[in-house]
Computed example of a mutant assay.
Amino acid sequence: MNRDLLSSISGKSILKVSFLVHEIGRDRNLNPQAIKLQIFGASSLFVKCASDGETLVVETNAKWFECREMGEFGREVIENVTEDEPWKKYTGMLITAVRVFKSLEKDIGFSLLFRTGEIFVFNVGDEIVNYEYFPTDIFRDENVSVESV
């Protein structure tokens, strides 16, 4: 995970959040394939699962973040989730700090801290999930450590 990119958004605010989601017919996976964070005064950050299936990739150049048809396997669509919870509460608010979560020396997630709360983004079983509270039930036996960036 690119910690320098994550630390660069501290002191800035989120303008818009988009998910790249997979759907087949009317069924839509609620966990995104990727996340785009548009940041005021900075480059957009793109987050996706790494090829190892455990860590996250954070980058600024993502030509792959686009709608695409996948034939019988469905399609990927971009969905604006800025007005959805938990993002709605924090859009426009200043990010006061960013923390990275590690398990077995791998960066498995990060959190964005705001004056009134926090959003957690994790790779869980090769899927991106986001929470407003630390998911202790998922990481109880994982020996997760946290580092500020």
Rank of each mutant, 00 (worst) to 15 (best):
K106V: 03
E85M: 11
S44M: 06
D107R: 10
C49R: 02
D84M: 13
L112V: 05
S111R: 14
I35K: 07
C67W: 01
D137N: 08
F114T: 06
G92T: 13
S145C: 08
R75D: 00
T136R: 11
V77E: 08
W87S: 06
D126S: 12
T96M: 09
S111C: 07
K102Y: 08
F101K: 04
L113W: 11
D27H: 04
K89Q: 15
M70F: 10
L113P: 06
A34R: 14
D4G: 07
Y90M: 01
V47K: 13
G109T: 03
D84H: 12
V47Q: 04
I39F: 05
M70Y: 03
T91P: 06
A62Y: 00
G41L: 03
F114D: 04
K16M: 12
G109K: 01
D137Y: 01
S145H: 04
E69W: 07
L113R: 12
L37P: 01
G74N: 06
K12P: 05
V129T: 06
V129W: 00
D141Q: 14
V129N: 01
R75Y: 10
Q38N: 13
H22R: 15
K102S: 02
N29R: 09
R68F: 04
V129L: 02
I14S: 07
D107I: 11
L5W: 02
M70V: 08
R99Q: 03
W87Y: 06
R99Y: 04
S10I: 03
